[in-house]
Design a protein around this nucleic acid. Structure first.
Lengths: 222, 222, 222, 222
DNA sequence: TATGAATGAGCATTCATTCAT
DNA sequence: CATGAATGAATGCTCATTCAT
């Protein structure tokens, strides 16, 4: 009896686990499908039906996992910011809180994020704009996390290296400036280049990072 | 007969002129209406009917002046870039091709363009994204004009002040970096602030410009 | 010239008139199509597409004439009440404000309205229920007109014949009671009978009217 | 063995009983949940999922107890008629088959049924309309029970008090008339009044009953 | 030129119902 | 018995665009 029970339990638990796994799998497949199609055709020209087709499920299933179309984009956006924070964060932490960390992070943005996570870049800086106010709010809050990361890093490095910024606001301007350069330079050189005619991205990344470092330095007070 | 003809001609010519004026007037009114509504509600949530209503004409008329809805946005985008080029250009030219010109231009962006032409800012950096490939191409070509302006300015100032950039590409990276900072800092601080809680924009502009100047300098070689 | 002008004007005016006529025609056709289908299949099982098909126009056209599906029902409902008021009113007015007028009206309900306007009956008492709160309000307001008609008639006849009701409320209860009998008796005997097995409607009408007259009398005070 | 069996049986029987109880319980809870939600939001705006949620079971369970959504409404309708028959019946039976019994029944309708079973009233006269033909048939058959009750009562009282109606049909018209008054007066004064502004329902009930009594009398032949 | 009625493809979303576990 | 994930047909509604007048 005890044995039977145990086996029974084990069996149940196994099938339950499998279901759980399948559910998570579906969720991920849906997100990936959405990402692929949105990056390719744009959010507005991607219909929920297309996403369902691509994920090989029914429309109803999409709505079982996501409350509406926009939620798909929000999740993708959050995923993108998470990845970006991770890429920048680990690059920064390879140095001991020196300015070199910022260089590393910058290069990681261009050489890692833009190359290995290009769809996420598109979602982050191209598709998540011009949408509903709720999306706008969401976008703001999520990006805020990233901004806080960088601002904190600036402060830490400053403490270590005996410099600081005039005001908290100045530090944030520097942060936002950095992100602006990331975004625009990458956008300009990645999104707009024909695939045949890709410029030397590594060089461009280096230049952009140099620009950023110059900007960072120019506002410090010691 | 001659007299009659002349009179007739005169009349025609007068009425033709009036018509010409009215046509141009209509065109402008339509653009303004479109701008107002798109900035307020976003491109996708603005219908051609709404634009027609706001301009007090019929839908058909909109299609007489513009081939389709997207063309309205393209024209607005071009207008926006034109205005921005003008604002930056005149600020730059107030100095004699010194780096001070770039400072002036930067400050003009934040203190003039963002304040006095805010709708254009929205069109340029928020609504004209995530649209069709044709729009994308259009956007690229139009922005290219602006980028060329700044790149030329960099070269001119460099010639005057005996510095230059390693490569043409570096100069363009600097340019794009500058525009990225403009865009993102402004976007962050203008679009996202509650109207009540506007931060000190002038200060922010100064910091952003300082950042830019640092970046510009850090890549020069003499 | 003058002649030409006149002709021109006449022509314009004629075509404009024709368009006007066509528009009104379309509107009516749409209403009729909606009525037919709703009476046959019920409001919820009638789709806007079906109505459009039946009227031989596109869906868009339906939405050009009616702001949404419910408005179609509201208009039908209003039409129904209008017709009913007219039927009852003219029957009543054939007598000189005597109780006989009520008899006439009652018989007209069963022998005219229920027979010659059966679709309207269905709309009035079967389909316009269980819908949205707005529809409910609409229904209330429209029916109120009918109730007021009857209540006024009661008062007029009372004045003429030297009787009245205890309170205003009593008069209204009588009114509502009358309408309740109309509705339910007709519903019971018209809607539920198989077409083969129609009972003697005239007899039923007479009985119902006798019932009503008894009710009317029993609450009078002289 | 016997013991074991007995025990086994006892155990089974006990658990079976418990299960039986639970099943009935579930059934009732589902009906109540459905009633609450349908009365509140209407049949069409109440989804099976909502009912399941409210009853704290899964959707599948709903379909174990009821063949489909409509069956829920049918059962509720039947319950409503049952309750109404009971209310009217017991009131009627308090008198010795005199006309007073009808008065009692009428007052019971307004003062008991409409007050203490208002949800049932809504189900009976508002939600169960405009639905599918099957529902219509069902509705007809169920209401027929009620009509038969009243017609029989009329006959019994007539026998007792030495009056009768011209034909069987006349008696049924009287019955239907009575129900029509019940329905419409109650509907008018209960459903449409703002909760703050409830009119004197007792008075209204009395008036309606007086109306009915007048109607009943006016068709009798002795 | 200007009008505005007409079009109809397209889309997001809902929900009753099923069925494997 | 109970669960809840999956289905997919069905629907109301929008809107860019056209074209006869």
């Amino acid at each position: 009896m005890q044995n039977a029970d145990k086996i029974e339990k084990k069996e149940l638990s196994r099938s339950a686990l499998r279901r759980q796994r399948e559910k998570e799998q579906r969720y991920k497949v849906l997100l990936t499908s959405a990402e692929t199609l949105i990056v390719k055709n744009g959010y507005h020209k991607t219909s929920v039906g297309q996403i369902a087709d691509h994920a090989e499920v029914s429309v109803g299933t999409v709505y079982f996992y996501f409350k509406n179309k926009e939620e798909l984009l929000i999740k993708l956006f959050e995923e993108g910011v998470k990845t970006l924070r991770h890429v920048l964060g680990s690059a920064f932490l390879k140095e001991d809180n020196s300015l070199k960390g910022f260089e590393n992070a910058g290069l990681a943005f261009f050489d890692d994020f833009c190359i290995n996570h290009r769809p996420k870049f598109t979602i982050l800086f191209k598709e998540a704009l011009g949408l509903s106010p709720e999306m706008e709010t969401q976008r703001k809050e999520t990006l805020e996390l990233l901004i806080n990361d960088v601002t904190s890093a600036l402060k830490i490095v400053g403490d270590e290296m005996n410099f600081s910024y005039r005001t908290e606001q100045t530090a944030r301007v520097v942060t936002v400036g950095i992100l602006g350069i990331y975004e625009r330079v990458a956008y300009q050189y990645i999104m707009w280049q024909d695939d045949t005619n890709t410029p030397n991205l590594e060089e461009i990344g280096k230049d952009a990072v140099a620009f950023i470092m110059g900007g960072i330095n120019s506002l410090t007070i010691s």
